[in-house]
C-alpha cells in the first residue's frame, strides 16, 4: 500500500513538474578529457560535436555551450545545456607549450588565452545548475585544483558528479579518486571509448533531472 502511495506521489509530481532546462558545466584540470566527454555526450544525443581535442594542454581556451540536449536515461528525460570549459590550472607557462614544438610567440599567445579561459570558466559557475568534474584516473587526485574546486562546489551547494576518466588505460585507478572524495557520486568512465558512459547518463538523470 505504501509503495503504491509513493508511486502515485511521484507520478503526480512528474505530471506537475515544470519542464526545466538544467545548465551543466564540465569542469576539471587540463587534459582530463573534458572536451572528449562533452563531444561524447553531444554526439550520443544529437550527432554533433562540441570542439577539437588535443594532447597539448589548454586546447579549449573559451567556454563552449551546447543547448537543448535531451538525455533519456533511467526512465526519465532530462533536457540539458552543456558547457565545456577550459581546464582549471594554478600555473600556466608558455615554456610548457614550447616543449610540444610550438614557437615562442604562439606559445605565449596560448598561455594568455588559457589564463583568460580559466577566468571565464570560473565566471560560468554563477549560471550553472550542476557540475560534472572530470578527473584523470591515471593521475593523483590530491591536487590543489581538485581540492579547491570541490571545496567551492560544496560551499555553493552545486550538485556534483565526479567522472573518473581514462579507465581504458591500465594504470587508471578510480578507487583512488573515490577514497580521496568519498562524499561525492563518482562514475568511472572512458570518454574516449565510451566505457560505462550509460551509468554516467543514469547519474545525470538522477542528479540533474
Amino acid at each position: 500500500m505504501k509503495k503504491m502511495q509513493i508511486r502515485l506521489f511521484s507520478w503526480i509530481k512528474k505530471l506537475f513538474k515544470k519542464d526545466r532546462m538544467a545548465k551543466i558545466g564540465i569542469y576539471g584540470p587540463p587534459n582530463a578529457g573534458k572536451t572528449t566527454l562533452a563531444n561524447r555526450v553531444v554526439r550520443d544525443w544529437t550527432g554533433d560535436a562540441v570542439g577539437p581535442v588535443s594532447h597539448i594542454p589548454h586546447e579549449t581556451r573559451r567556454a563552449r555551450r551546447r543547448e537543448g540536449i535531451t538525455i533519456e536515461a533511467n526512465g526519465t528525460t532530462v533536457s540539458l545545456d552543456i558547457v565545456d570549459t577550459p581546464g582549471l590550472a594554478t600555473k600556466i607557462d608558455f615554456h610548457d607549450f614550447m616543449a610540444f614544438g610550438m614557437k615562442e610567440e604562439e606559445a605565449k599567445r596560448r598561455a594568455k588565452e588559457a589564463t583568460e579561459g580559466v577566468i571565464e570558466a570560473v565566471k560560468w559557475l554563477e549560471d550553472l545548475d550542476g557540475v560534472i568534474l572530470v578527473m584523470d584516473a591515471t593521475e593523483d587526485p590530491f591536487t590543489q585544483v581538485n581540492v579547491t574546486v570541490i571545496g567551492n562546489m560544496e560551499a555553493r551547494h552545486l550538485p556534483l558528479i565526479i567522472a573518473a576518466n581514462k579507465i581504458d588505460i591500465p594504470e587508471a585507478s578510480p578507487t583512488r579518486i573515490r577514497s580521496a572524495f568519498p562524499q561525492h557520486t563518482l562514475v568511472p568512465i572512458s570518454a574516449l571509448e565510451g566505457q560505462n558512459i550509460e551509468t554516467l547518463y543514469d547519474e545525470i538523470a538522477n542528479r540533474f533531472g
Binding site: 607557462d93 608558455f94 605565449k108 598561455a111 589564463t115 580559466v118 577566468i119 570560473v122 574546486v149 567551492n152
Partner: peptide
C-alpha cells in the same frame, strides 16, 4: 613574465 601566469583559483572562485 609575459606568457607565464600563476592563478589563485581560491580567490577567483570566491
Amino acid at each position: 613574465t609575459p606568457g607565464e601566469y600563476e592563478l589563485n583559483l581560491d580567490s577567483l572562485l570566491k
